[in-house]
Design a binder for these strands. Structure first.
Lengths: 252, 252
DNA sequence: AATGCAATTTTGTGATCACAAATCCCACGA
DNA sequence: TCGTGGGATTTGTGATCACAAAATTGCATT
């Protein structure tokens, strides 16, 4: 079937957008291993669509740095190196620090309440030992702050940066959580938002990011590589166990 | 013809990449007016290629914010508003300030020489009243600094931001240049790079960007719009003078 | 002259086809 | 046992086709 009509309202229901959302979700939830090759036809087959929307979605992800492309024109999940982590750390400190500062000046009472709620849910999930929910809520907490800044371009840039660190934050979560210093920093950040102290909000956000990504950088081996040099191909020639669960089209 | 072989070396010779480069050039050189509608078929016809590479190139530019897409799925050059300029100003101060600081720590003697050369060429062009060369050299000066930072992800982000401000910097150049404070700031920046003073380099870069974009923001009318609310369509139905020179495929 | 409204054209989207470059596989020989 | 070469397969790229939603035009009526 060539197409299905577009509902009157609803944001973007194009297949391209759904494929994009699906791949994003697959990346942030760690469904693809770093270094893994991902072919257009594999994704198209998995999602039951033609190559066209897959190509556009994957090209966009390549442009965003979530995938990388060999000179031999094959697409893979980027391998992380110490240098790249340190670069991302410094960029994120700037941009997410800026967003926190803006949020301190602009956040509404409702937005602060939402941020506080996310902070509570992190504690609950962590006490239960529920890693998946923990990570999800940490993400919600951060993006609730960034959304409160009310700067759409800034938000878009930050989303792109999270997408690049995403697969690794999942992979390294166990090591990572054990070094966490707990909810004190988030509490101080929330207080800074309440009293409109942009400088303090920025400082707390920068400190949090510096700690997290410096920790990740220290996990690098002597060659500067961070995760397993795991090859793996998702294009499956030679059956391949296909242990990874197939992913599905996301409605956006 | 379906394809032409790819040279052994050379970066990316795909049509998609060439179309992307062509549109980028057209945007930064002000060949498209803000608010102008740009259709896939128009670009494809102008460049003599099929829709496929044009779609991929333009979608990427939409993702980067260089084009924007109506809910009715038509692509246009974004209109600039005061709020957007101020947001871009603050983001660029952070990122380009960071790049300048990193450049101060990492720039080689050769790189500094190249930066100094660009600074000289700005002066020459400006004295000649050659606006086009002036703008080009200003761009080269800045990107020579950013390249010296040696941070590929940071460089990519900055390029995306310049692409968003690009069409307007051209449009507003005459007003803009009259308010410029001359080469003193660039000279101080170069000196900071030479003595490896990251703090001073960052300060100079931030000051430069703040001044330039604050000036642009002040050009907004009472509605917050900056450039002409010029409609215009490049899809040309109803002949249209077609004053704009056709643009060409770029080799990268 | 202004305003609806239907017919026509334009335009974005997705599927499919053709082709060449990469990659893989397997047999063959040192 | 370890390359090595050549044929088969996979895979990205670009062109083309089909279709529906939008935009535009043309005409009729007030």
């Amino acid at each position: 079937m060539p197409r299905t009509a577009a509902p009157p309202d609803a944001a973007d229901t194009s297949l391209r957008q759904q494929v994009y959302a699906s791949l994003r979700e697959a990346l942030t939830s760690g469904r693809f291993a770093p270094g893994q090759k991902v072919t257009f036809r594999y994704v198209a087959g998995e999602l039951g669509v033609s190559l066209t929307p897959v190509r556009e979605a994957m090209r966009r992800l390549v442009a965003e740095g979530a995938f990388e492309m060999n000179p031999n024109r094959s697409v893979r999940v980027p391998l992380m190196t110490r240098d790249k982590v340190l670069e991302l750390r410094d960029i994120r400190m700037e941009l997410e620090g800026l967003a926190a500062a803006k949020a301190a000046l602009a956040a509404t009472r409702n937005q602060i309440a939402g941020i506080r709620r996310a902070a509570r849910e992190i504690i609950v999930a962590r006490n239960r030992g529920d890693g998946a929910t923990d990570r999800q809520k940490v993400r919600e907490f951060h993006f609730a702050v960034y959304a409160a800044a009310g700067q759409p371009t800034l938000l878009r840039l930050i989303e792109g940066l999270w997408l690049q660190t995403g697969p690794y934050m999942n992979l390294l979560y166990p090591d990572f959580i054990s070094s966490s210093r707990g909810p004190a920093g988030r509490q101080r950040l929330i207080e800074a938002l309440e009293v409109r102290d942009a400088t303090a909000a920025r400082r707390e956000m920068e400190t949090d990011i510096r700690r997290a990504l410096s920790y990740v950088a220290d996990l690098a081996d002597e060659n500067g590589n961070i995760a397993p040099a795991a090859p793996a191909t998702a294009g499956k020639r030679r059956s391949q166990p296909t242990t990874a669960a197939a992913f599905e089209l996301q409605a956006n």
